[in-house]
Structures are given as C-alpha cells and as structure tokens.
Amino acid sequence: MPDDLILETREVTKEFRGFVAVAGVSLKVKRGSIHGLIGPNGAGKTTMFNLLTRFLPVTRGTILHRGEDVTRMPPAQVARRGVVRSFQISAVFGSLTALENVRIALQRPLGTSFRFWAPSRSLSVLDDRARALLADVDLQDLADVPAGELPYGRKRALELATTLALEPEVLLLDEPTAGMGHEDVGRVAELIKRVARGRTVLMVEHNLSVVADLCDTITVLARGSVLAEGSYAQVSADPSVREAYIGSAA
C-alpha cells in the first residue's frame, strides 16, 4: 500500500499566530498520477505547497515521501530527494541567460559548485544537455537571452525546463498557467502532459479546464480543509464544492 503513495500528509496543520491556514489536511498522492489541488482563494493551496517542500515549518502533523518522514528536513534536502517545486510568480534568474538558468540546475550534481577558483567555462560540458532541455520547451533559439528579458509565457517555460533538469520524481507546480494568454495556456498544458510521463505531478491550478483535462485526481480545499476528493466529474458534481466556489466568486 505505501508503495504506490509517493507523497503523503497526515493531519497536517499550519497556524500563523493563531490563524489556521491549513487544518488537518491528509493528502495521498499516488505515484505516476497528476494530482490537482484546487479551491477558492485563501483555501491554503499555496501554504500546502510550502509545507510539502518544507519552505514553511509544519505546526502539527507528518509529511511522508516514499514512506519516509521528511517533516523536519531542510528544504534543499527535500529538493535533492527529487521533490521539486515551481513558484506562482515565474521564478527565473533574471540576469542569467536561459542557458545559464538551466545550467544552474544541472551543475550541482557536478560537485564543483563551491569552486571559486575554477573558470565558468568549466561548466560548458553541461551546455549540450542544457540546450536539449531548452529545446524540449521550444526555447532553443533564446538560449543566450537574459531570462529577465523573456516574455512571461517563455519565462514559465524556462522555469519548467530548469525544474526538469533536476529530473524530479515529484513535480509540484504552483499555478503553472497563472497570468497566461489563451495560446500559452494550451502550450503549457501540453508540456505538462508530456513531462508528466514517468513522473508524479501535484499542481495548484485555477484554470478548471486545464485541471479537467490533465488531472487524474483532484483535491478541493476550502478554508484550510479538504472539501472533496475524486475525479473531475466527481468533485464538480459535489454540491459543497459548488457552494464554496460560488460563495467565494461573489
């Protein structure tokens, strides 16, 4: 049973000075699935992400990765275990080129990242792999452009390429299509579908058509608790889910 659960939370709670952002959430993410996390604003989705990746300390509860307790592990170590997140606001290194952005992710396993006396040329052995990753997201022609100068949709694509460079086992995507135009949304959705093969994806997403299209399992959060869970058809038929959405949409 724990074998096919790659990520699990047990009764996880997060309090900020008395305000309960996440209240006893138990989440089971199956290996190889695309799992959606949806809910109205303030439901605790991003907080949940921050807890899972250890960017925020958990107040109570347990987080398991591959059945091992990672509740107290430092965030960088969780990332090195293969649980890698993206950010709501596109997170690229602005003054570095697209190629250098991807290389940052590739260079750590090289073991030379503390070498201040080595020339940066020594990283060029990674260029071929970096270019291949850029090509995967259609950025091959923009490899030498500083990331800060890329249009928004391209930044998100670059962020994805950088994340994929780590060959993550679990991908946590925080609103991958937020703020995107229609055609970009389609492109990113395609991309997610493609990269999800052989991986597990947990994503927070507001665009319900993307969720309906991509996700095998959907968990609906509202006010820090799980409201419903199941396939898109199941949760969208749930009256309490409808109420939560309409209640917050006003």
């Binding site: 430092p74 997170a91 570095l96 030379t112 201040f116 020339p119």
Partner: peptide, 28 residues
C-alpha cells in the same frame, strides 16, 4: 575569477532568487 566561476554562478542565482535556488537543491 570568483565572480565568473561555478561558485559565482550559484551566488548570482541566490542573489536573484533565493527561494528558487533552494528549490533547486542548493544549501544557500
């Protein structure tokens, strides 16, 4: 040389976006 080294690259990454550098597995 330090600025233009593998270490310098990581340093720049940390300066520009520390949470992202952490999420890539760096003990910043």
């Amino acid at each position: 040389r330090t600025i233009d080294s593998p270490f310098g690259q990581v340093l720049r990454a940390i300066r520009e976006n520390e949470p992202r550098a952490i999420s890539l597995g760096y003990d910043v």
